[in-house]
């Protein structure tokens, strides 16, 4: 084996240049190109939506679905979208923060990891299945509560009634959305809670603080902006969520704050999913115009959320 002469080996090893120049340039170009493709895609989403929405934007009112102008078509949908997402956030944020605290500070180490897997599992379930569960289980189960709300809190505009007999109401939709966005908010807040400096936490405990006092004095202030930005991420997701709303909500197109009735405004996303397959001509353009509004709103919300997160990370 070692019969090979040392000088021969040296020539084998040294032979030929191994300049990486050309390969490096090609590979770097490919990688950069992929990055540019992604940016171009995002720009393309905006561009193609505008192009296809344009006919609806410029069309005269009587040609559009509903026979009114585009704003009158999109406004009730936008209203429904905002109502559903807002209530979902109101339900989801406190729950998510509690779940995040449970995993980061309350649960014993042994079970914290499996528990966070379970929460992640919530995010893995396809939205169409949430929709089926909402209409088949949560809706019917909520009828008693809706009736109770109407009877006891009916003086509030939200619970004016008449209460739905099927549970296909805005409140139930928002509850389903809340479950869907909970894992997102939990994941972001939890990771920041876990980064709370030990010295702060131990400082509080060393002064004789109880665990809750420690959380209130150190963890929550530290995670405040994370809670805000995570809520905005959740809001973005709730605004765009389609199938759960499309399946569960009973729609009349009315603009109402009543959360427990059966005549609800639809949302932009659900309206597109339900109407698109049967639409043609200008109606398609009008739907795309509504999608453009949704895109713009979610883009703004997400960009704001990311800006807050990035600022937090830099500190």
């Amino acid at each position: 084996m070692s019969s090979t002469n040392v000088d021969d080996l040296q020539s084998v090893v040294r032979g030929g240049p191994a300049r990486g120049g050309a390969g490096d340039r090609v590979f770097r170009g490919l990688a950069t190109g992929a990055g540019v493709v992604i940016l171009a895609t995002l720009a393309g989403v905006a561009l193609f939506l505008i192009v296809r929405a344009w006919p609806a934007i410029t069309a005269s009112a009587e040609d559009l679905p509903g026979g009114e102008n585009l704003l009158a078509y999109i406004w009730p949908l936008t209203f429904g979208t905002i109502i559903a997402a807002t209530i979902a956030i109101v339900i989801a944020v406190p729950l998510s923060v509690a779940v995040a605290l449970f995993i980061s500070h309350i649960a014993p180490r042994r079970i914290a990891q499996p528990m966070s897997y379970l929460i992640d599992l919530l995010a893995a379930i396809p939205s169409v299945i949430y929709g089926l569960w909402g209409i088949a289980v949560l809706g019917p189960a909520s009828v008693g509560l809706l009736r109770w709300l109407e009877d006891n809190l009916g003086w509030l505009p939200f619970f004016e009634g008449p209460a739905s007999a099927t549970g296909r109401t805005m409140l139930v939709v928002a509850a389903v959305l809340a479950v869907m966005i909970l894992p997102i908010i939990t994941a972001v807040t939890r990771s920041v809670f876990e980064q709370t400096p030990r010295r702060l936490q131990e400082g509080a405990l060393a002064l004789g603080a109880t665990r809750w006092e420690m959380i209130r004095l150190t963890v929550l202030p530290f995670g405040k902006s994370a809670i805000i930005s995570a809520s905005m991420l959740g809001l973005g997701r709730a605004l765009g969520e389609t199938m759960a709303v499309a399946i569960v909500l009973s729609v009349s197109g009315a603009i109402t704050f009543d959360l427990i009735g059966s005549g609800n405004p639809s949302t932009i996303a659900a309206n597109i999913a339900l109407d698109f397959p049967e639409s043609s001509g200008l109606a398609v353009n009008a739907l795309i115009a509504s999608g453009l509004v949704l895109f713009a709103v979610t883009l703004v919300v997400n960009m704001a959320a990311r800006t807050v997160i990035n600022r937090q990370m830099r500190i």
């Binding site: 084996m1 090979t4 040392v6 080996l9 084998v12 090893v13 030929g16 191994a18």
Partner: peptide, 19 residues
């Protein structure tokens, strides 16, 4: 040698590694 994709006979490579 391998990362630079140099073509080297197996027996030469064995000798280089051993050395």
């Amino acid at each position: 040698l391998k990362l630079n994709s140099r073509k080297i006979k197996k027996s030469d490579l064995d000798a280089i590694v051993e050395r």
